[in-house]
Design a protein around this nucleic acid. Structure first.
Length: 191
DNA sequence: TGAATGATCACG
DNA sequence: GTGATCATTCAT
């Protein structure tokens, strides 16, 4: 049974949402294209006290979506060339989101290969900026409603075997929180 | 290991 | 305005 995750799903503990998203399917529908992939790796960014979060110094024009209602997309541009996709969690006023770090490509693989200029499967969406390039996600998706018909997550009833966790990638603070989650022994996770 | 490449933010 | 920084990727 396939069902689109509703706002209630996102309005929960960010760590729970980050883990529950593994094995679900991210879908992007745009310009008549339908692209999707299984979520195999996520990271949690929670609250304003954690220096690793964009929300650490309070609300700014860039991160304001993180402070809003759950179930919306937070997309940001970084390193002068890359986009990253987050799904906003928890109640309005509390800044938190789950970074989607890697997908196993499922639908629209030829389009992804063309966008990524890569032939195989494992290199199409095995990183937060890679999957945005593959799916065509850019700043126009910032603030997009995940309960809409252009960007959403589906539960196909898939049962997850084993979840591993580790420290988050690419953040320099010595925060030892194991807030990165991924499917064990999955070949589509980053690096 | 380091270059690419530009938006963002704090500071003043 | 200015300068440091950056939840990355790819080629060397």
């Amino acid at each position: 049974m396939i069902k689109k995750l509703n706002r209630k799903f996102y309005n929960r503990s960010t760590l729970k949402v980050a883990k529950d998203l593994l094995g679900k399917y991210l879908v992007v529908q745009k310009n008549g294209e339908l692209l999707s992939g299984k979520i195999v790796e996520t990271e949690a960014y929670i609250g304003y006290k954690n220096p690793a979060s964009h929300a650490y110094r309070g609300m700014t024009p860039r991160n304001e979506v993180m402070f809003g209602d759950p179930g919306y997309a937070y997309v940001y541009f970084t390193y002068g060339m890359h986009h990253c996709l987050n799904l906003v969690t928890e109640e309005n006023g509390y800044p938190a989101a789950v970074l989607i770090r890697a997908l196993e490509p499922v639908q629209g693989i030829e389009i992804m290969q063309k966008r990524r200029k890569r032939k195989g499967l494992t290199d199409l969406a095995s990183g937060p900026a890679k999957l945005c390039q593959a799916l065509g996600v850019d700043l126009k998706f910032n603030g997009e409603d995940l309960c809409s018909d252009s960007l959403w997550v589906e539960d196909k009833g898939e049962v997850i075997k084993s979840i591993s966790s580790s420290t988050r990638i690419g953040i320099k603070e010595k925060d030892k929180k194991n807030w990165r989650f991924f499917l064990k022994n999955n070949e589509f996770v980053s690096r």
